[in-house]
Nucleic acid binder design. Structure first.
Lengths: 340, 340
DNA sequence: CAGGAGTGCTTAAGCGGTTAACTCGATGGG
DNA sequence: CCCATCGAGTTAACCGCTTAAGCACTCCTG
């Protein structure tokens, strides 16, 4: 099948390619009748603009990029990315001329190298950055090369707008909920300390512990992998005066920890309550179903694209606050065991 | 930051842009000394080719496409796609000039429309098609418009090469394994009947049931969602002379079914053995860990890209047989209950 | 020493669009 | 009735790169 170009349309309509271009782009320079005719012909013949040619003249590639920097193993299971991708795609559907370019990298350097390459090759018009660190170097690099970007995470100094959600109030709510169930010793298994949101949640957790005058609290750091969740659980459960509730920073760690607890003969929720700071079908799939905070990740994807569109149009955008996570109580949390 | 073009390099090297092009592309037409100099300058100045310009002259976009046609909900949880994507990315890393374009669609029509659009806009050089149906119309459309493609699934009549794995032997092995554990009544909860691999497995299951002279067997069809898995489990467990083992076509259905069984007081594996035809971290994450068939999905992604590269280079490729699924026995399968 | 064959480079057309500048005819105001 | 103005097109340059064709120049050969 032959691909049509505007000169095919021009021939069919009996006008020049310039006129066709004006007609198709809704620009002045052609009569209403001609425009109508060109539009009709282009539509009937099924013409679509060559993205390469448009990219060359408009210096817009019509694509936005997302780089996922996780080992393949973790990638497979974490629902986070696919939820994010579906949000992005939902927002992109409003404008079918934009596509999503996805890359998976092994490490941060490869990620940065890919941003540079995409920029130099003019492959993407902008990117969405995830897993923001405190003082993340990526935002600096992106600002330096001038690649429009929107980040997911707490606002950072610099020019990259962020889509963020308040973790403090939900943390307060979660600890309050556990306290109301009678828990006085609550642990938290966080993600890597380098992530900005990890630190914010650490702080919020500390404040909430204070507010509710817990007897004991502790924060461990994992790496979002199932192994690290199980390891943390085993450590916490081996302690003398152990935690009766644990809040995990993602679903994978929470689920692994629940499995580890079961193996140690610790029943959930009878002897241990578990909360996951990230809801997904996973949490609903297992038994007991896991109490989780729904972070509306899909919504984050939508907001990120909307913000990126604004950056592309206006050159800059404000930080955007996404709806706060919502606690979804399920079967993995219960009243504190009476003997504790 | 300014983006460099070959004329910047040409100026710096004191030659014409044509000479620079020959030098950079390893084509004859320049002396070794000039080539060396141009290469060195381009490298030092950090020049990268504009993808748009290359796409225009070479009529190659430097991207391959993948369309995922699942509702956002299922998408989030199914590890399949991310595993596939990591395989694709692994293979793509060998050639950094190729990128992955990802789209998520609501239905088959939208998927086909997206193929047409990508082709007409020259956005991708080829695509990878997943979830092949028996007599899938997509391969016909792709052949018609001439968009190079590789499909994942059983070879179909037509011109699209397929990456496929034999399901018959593993099915035989799985049923044999369950039979050896004493199971005489085995059910199978398959994916939608329209998928080619579903039908193949149905057949293989029927044969294996015959071979092992089972007392009873049954095949239900789900849609890969957790709900459908749970529903199937409840139906199977409500029967009079019920199945003692069930083989599910994916991990999500298997896990949901296990949860449903637990809710009905049916212990796994004591009263019911469960097998998932799709291994993932999910299966290892829950307790009891789920016996599963590892389909080497990442490897399928790698093979798909390699085959697609061949199609792009040579114009066609043979079907490729991927390694067969391997049974990974875990805690969800056990000896048949003595009272059955 | 003219003529042919290589080198090594430049020139220019072209890929499929966009768009500034120009042309041409109709209109209208003075 | 003449000229400025405007609308509706056309023309051609350009985006960054590729590549066929052309053009000096050297070298070799008879």
């Amino acid at each position: 099948m032959k691909r049509l170009t505007i000169s095919d349309i021009a021939d069919a309509a009996g006008v020049s390619t310039g006129a066709v271009s004006y007609a198709l782009n809704g620009k002045p320079g052609v009569s209403a009748a001609t425009r109508e005719r060109v539009l009709e012909i282009a539509d009937r013949m099924g013409w679509r603009p060559s993205n390469a040619a448009r990219a060359l003249t408009r210096s817009r590639s019509g694509a936005i990029g997302l780089i996922v920097d996780r080992p393949a193993q973790v990638l497979g299971i974490e629902p986070f990315f696919m939820q994010l991708v579906s949000g992005i795609e939902m927002a992109l559907r409003a404008d079918p001329s934009t596509a999503l370019m996805l890359a998976v990298t092994d490490d941060r350097d490869a990620e940065i190298e890919t941003y540079r390459r995409w920029w130099a090759e003019r492959r993407v018009d902008g990117v969405i950055v995830v897993d923001l660190h405190e003082n993340d170097i990526r935002t600096g690099v992106l600002a330096e090369i001038g690649l429009p970007a929107v980040a997911l995470g707490y606002p950072q100094p610099g020019e990259v707008p962020c889509v963020w959600a308040d973790d403090a109030a939900p943390m307060e709510e979660t600890v309050g909920y556990l306290a109301a169930l009678g828990h006085r010793r609550i642990a938290r298994v966080a993600g890597p300390g380098r992530f900005a949101h990890t630190l914010r949640r650490d702080e919020a957790f500390a404040r909430a512990v204070e507010t509710h005058q817990l007897e004991w609290s502790k924060t461990l750091h994992g790496d979002y992998s199932g192994d690290s969740g199980a390891r943390a659980a085993r450590r916490l459960l081996s302690e003398r005066n152990r935690a009766t509730a644990v809040i995990f920073d993602n679903d994978v760690m929470a689920l692994s920890a629940m499995a580890a607890a079961q193996e140690m003969g610790v029943s959930v929720p009878d002897h241990l309550s578990i909360v996951s700071w990230d809801d997904s079908a996973l949490c609903r799939l297992v038994r007991p179903a896991v109490t989780a905070l729904d972070r509306h990740i899909t919504q984050h994807g939508v907001l990120a694209i909307e913000t990126l569109n604004e950056v592309l149009a206006v050159g800059t955008a404000e930080h955007v606050q996404a709806p706060a996570p919502i606690l979804m109580p399920r079967a993995s949390t219960g009243r504190v065991p009476s003997d504790s």
